[in-house]
Design a protein around this nucleic acid. Structure first.
Length: 880
DNA sequence: TCTTTGCATGGGT
DNA sequence: AACCCATGCAAAG
């Protein structure tokens, strides 16, 4: 039995070796956080990057680099960092990935902190020189500081500067030095040295620099997982997460730091961070109104850390793609961005700067007059603004003065976004912009969420992923150079700009002039703030809201009310949410319908083949349901079996083919992808082709966004589409009827209760909707001609059109906004208290509702008697 | 009278 | 409740 305490009796971690470990050497980092102890031979093999080649040649998981064809072992922990997953599939070795600048981290990997191998000694040695350089550099002006850390001497001449290079906030330094007491003193000293010299937080560490602090070394050449991690951490998520950075940095630390590593990997906030920030940002409060705070005295300010602390709206949303294309021979550090207010974009020429941003990224100023600040715009022009502040409530309000010419030259207006970045190694401030009218960048994560959704308006900001050509662009005056110049120096990229005033040593790359979307509703966020608590719960940053909304929209399709529950509908920022009084059931969305003999059925779509299968009405399907689970119809329990062609199905999905008149191909549903197809089909049903339907504006509902799949929004524009018959069982009609029923029933119940309390005598004694005592205009305000027309149609059993359907919904909503098909009556009541003086209106309203309800419900009940009293669509619907 | 400048205010976070 | 910041506004030029 071996003794665990005796290292001499341990064996090599490589199970194919098992040599005794006389002098254990560190290998890869294991999931436990410890390093694999290897024998000399295995360690050397590992450090040479040939471990898998040597020991795992027969293992599975070998793949070829898409570029060079080199075989990479993708199947084990040892070499997971030596390749990247390509967006289009396949993998690419890190060498090729570097060449092509596509450095998307392997997204599916576990927290990198668990696997980070440390650096080979040769890299460590190389980087140590940089640390010495840093240590010897002495105090530097803030904008020069970065160059010290990204000097060309620190990198291989063959390797382009990578966009993953990130600012290492000096807070990290302190963290490391204070929280990792066991770190070697040398490293500690270096960190401390550098800590005090990173004025304004402009310390910029290349990945190799960071890695240089790693004590252990065994990574293969430039294949560095930290590189990916850093990139991922800092940019791909559209925000710089200090925890990520901390993770990456700490991961390079010796084993002793593992605890921290794990903590960072788990996004556990670091107390140090807040402490630092608390110090840094308390400068203007209280006693520090006149003098300089720590910040102003040139104390370190960390970009990443600060960035993480910035309000989300100021965090630069530059994407990794943008960075990749921007970088060229320089590195752009996104600092912050700001949407131009009316004041900013006005003629006053003052751009109010977010305080924290100004203090973090701009030179410290002690006098209100401030100092000139040179900023380069996207054309390469240098502008000199006056960076100053106003004393304000014991604080400061930072402004850039004289920005009008620049703003105008960029053709910016209120709502557009200006971005501030810093080009390294020059340390030059650059000012980019995004026009509000163009789609913004989106991180890959959001793309998947939003890809199938049509979204717009202010919440739309992050909805669409920017295509490469859109990611970076030149301003309008640089048309023609929109994409190609981005990896070129500006001078080359745009010769026309060579005449522009330039800095002598200007060799910066393209500036981050993202033509990205801003929030079109400039200050609606500020103004439209009357939100219920529910909204507040959802109201995060705009782009997150969108994600959330879409997620909710999608999720809602998977939620069903529990049996025998009638869900209410509440609209939160234009998105309908069904409310259940009990936990919803998550199931597969289906189409509830009735077949031609009145039997209630469901149509469920196979997860795999997308064919629609008929299942019993009361079947509750799992969220992932496939034909194989179609136990009700064994003949159709295989995806290979054609979709059942029935009259009901054809009626439900009549127009999935361009030529609606042609007989439906039973498998044509397969042309549509997933359950989104169902919603599309509902639209197509109205007569448009899929393409058209996705692009044609839907019937507008003021509180709904394009992409909203609610009953109102999925209709074609008014006047278009076929008429709906009274007996129509299409999705829209079913939903309308069902929702209306629910609404009316609940409304009636509520009103009855209230009336019983307030107007016991008047109850049913007046029916003011037909009362001649009520001024007609008041009546008209509740029962307009359209409503009457609709009412008549319903009474007479006439067919009603899409317009009618719209009116069913919108007209009810038109009741002073108190009746909304998307609203929950009770909620409306709460939100719209009715004063007693409004008795007439109220009675009229009640009467009309009852009137409308009578017509509608009677009709609906009649139909339901034959069609079934319960219809649902995609789990969205109400049960009446 | 118009523009610029500096500060105050108050809604929003 | 404190702070931020968009904007109003009065004084100065």
């Amino acid at each position: 039995m071996m003794s665990f305490s005796s290292s001499s009796t341990r064996i090599c971690f490589n199970s194919l070796c098992n040599d005794a470990l006389e002098r254990p050497r560190k290998g890869w980092r294991r999931r436990t956080g410890e390093f694999a102890d290897l024998c000399d031979r295995c360690a050397s093999t590992y450090e040479e990057g040939k471990f898998c080649e040597t020991f795992h040649m027969n293992a599975s998981g070998w793949r070829c680099c898409e570029s060079c064809g080199k075989q990479i072992h993708c199947g084990c922990i040892v070499s997971f960092h030596t390749f990247v997953l390509l967006d289009a599939g396949g993998i690419e070795c890190m060498t090729c990935a570097r060449k092509s600048f596509i450095l998307t981290p392997n997204p599916a990997w576990p927290p990198p902190s668990l696997f980070l191998p440390a650096l080979p000694d040769r890299i460590k040695d190389l980087s140590a020189k940089n640390w010495d350089l840093i240590a010897e550099s002495g105090p530097v002006p803030w904008r020069q500081a970065p160059s010290l850390f990204s000097s060309s001497s620190a990198r291989s001449g063959l390797q382009p500067r990578m966009p993953f290079e990130v600012d290492l906030p000096n807070g990290i330094d302190r963290l490391i030095t204070t929280e990792c007491p066991s770190a070697p003193s040398l490293e500690k000293k270096k960190l401390e040295d550098s800590s005090g010299r990173s004025m304004n937080g402009s310390l910029k560490f290349r990945a190799s620099d960071i890695l240089a602090n790693g004590k252990e070394g065994n990574s293969g050449e430039q294949d560095n997982p930290v590189v990916n991690d850093l990139q991922k951490a800092s940019f791909s998520a559209n925000e710089v997460s200090m925890s990520h950075i901390g993770m990456a940095v700490s991961s390079a630390l010796p084993n002793e730091a593992n605890d921290h590593i794990k903590a960072f990997g788990s996004h556990v906030p670091r107390p140090m961070s807040s402490q630092l920030l608390g110090k840094q940002f308390s400068g203007h409060n209280g006693a520090d109104t006149s003098g300089e705070s720590q910040l102003h005295n040139g104390k370190p300010r960390g970009d990443g850390q600060l960035r993480n602390q910035l309000l989300p709206r100021y965090r630069p949303r530059i994407t990794d793609q943008e960075l990749q294309q921007i970088s060229g021979n320089s590195v752009i550090t996104p600092l912050f961005e700001k949407m131009l207010s009316a004041s900013d974009a006005g003629r006053i020429g003052r751009l109010v700067l977010p305080k924290k941003c100004a203090e973090a990224y701009f030179p410290s100023i002690s006098q209100p007059e401030g100092s000139p600040l040179k900023v380069q715009d996207s054309k390469g022009n240098d502008w000199i603004f006056q960076f100053r502040f106003w004393p304000n409530n014991n604080s400061r309000m930072y402004v850039l003065e004289g920005v009008t010419p620049c703003i105008q030259s960029m053709q910016l207006q209120a709502g557009d976004i200006v971005t501030f970045s810093r080009i390294e190694p020059e340390g030059k401030l650059v000012m980019g912009f995004r026009k509000a009218s163009t789609p913004p960048p989106s991180d890959k994560g959001t793309e998947s969420v939003n890809a199938t959704s049509r979204v717009s308006t202010k919440e739309d900001v992050s909805a669409k992923k920017t295509k490469p050509g859109e990611v970076l662009s030149t301003p309008h005056h640089l048309k023609g150079n929109s994409l190609s110049p981005c990896n070129l120096p500006i001078d080359q990229a745009n010769p026309a700009d060579q005449a522009s005033p330039r800095l002598k040593d200007d060799k910066s790359g393209c500036v981050a002039t993202e033509v990205l979307g801003g929030k079109s509703s400039i200050r609606s966020r500020r103004k439209n703030s009357t939100l219920a608590s529910k909204v507040k719960r959802l109201k995060i940053e705009d782009e997150h809201v969108i994600e959330l909304k879409l997620t909710w929209e999608q999720a809602q399709g998977l939620l069903r009310p529990p049996p025998n529950y009638v869900p209410g509908v509440v609209v939160i920022e234009g998105v309908e949410f069904e409310e259940y009084e009990d936990a919803p059931i998550i199931g597969r969305p289906t189409i509830f319908a009735a077949n031609c003999v009145g039997e209630k059925i469901q149509w469920a779509q196979c997860e795999d083949c997308f064919k629609l299968r008929k299942v019993p009405f009361d079947a509750l399907l799992p969220s992932r349901w496939t034909c194989s689970e179609n136990s009700w119809d064994p003949e159709r329990s295989f995806c290979s079996v054609a979709q059942e062609l029935t009259a009901e199905l054809e009626y439900l999905l009549p127009a999935s083919k361009p030529a609606a008149s042609k007989k439906r191909d039973p498998d044509s549903v397969e042309d549509l992808e997933g359950l989104d197809a169902l919603a599309n089909l509902a639209i197509q049903e109205e007569g448009g082709s899929p393409q058209e339907s996705s692009q044609t504006p839907t019937t507008k509902h003021p509180r709904h966004r394009p992409g909203c799949s609610c009953v109102i929004c999925i209709q074609p524009p008014s006047g278009k589409g076929p008429k709906h018959k009274q007996t129509c069982t299409c999705t829209i009609c079913l939903m309308v009827k069902r929702r209306f029923q629910t609404l009316m029933l609940r409304r009636e119940k509520k009103q009855s209760e209230k009336e019983a309390e307030i107007f016991p005598q008047q109850k049913f004694q007046q029916h003011p909707i037909f009362s001649e005592n009520v001024p007609e205009e008041i009546i008209r305000s509740f029962t307009n001609v359209e409503n009457r027309s609709l009412d008549r149609k319903m009474m007479n059993g006439e067919d009603f059109s899409n317009d009618d359907v719209s009116r069913i919904t919108s007209s009810v909503s038109a009741f002073k906004g108190q009746i909304d098909l998307n609203s929950q009556p009770e909620r409306d009541d709460e939100l719209s208290p009715r004063p007693d003086s409004d008795v007439v209106k109220r009675i009229m309203e009640n009467a009309f509702e009852r009137d409308l309800r009578l017509h509608f419900c009677n009709r609906s009940r009649e139909r339901n008697n034959s069609e079934g009293d319960q219809t649902r669509f995609g789990g969205l619907g109400l049960e009446g």
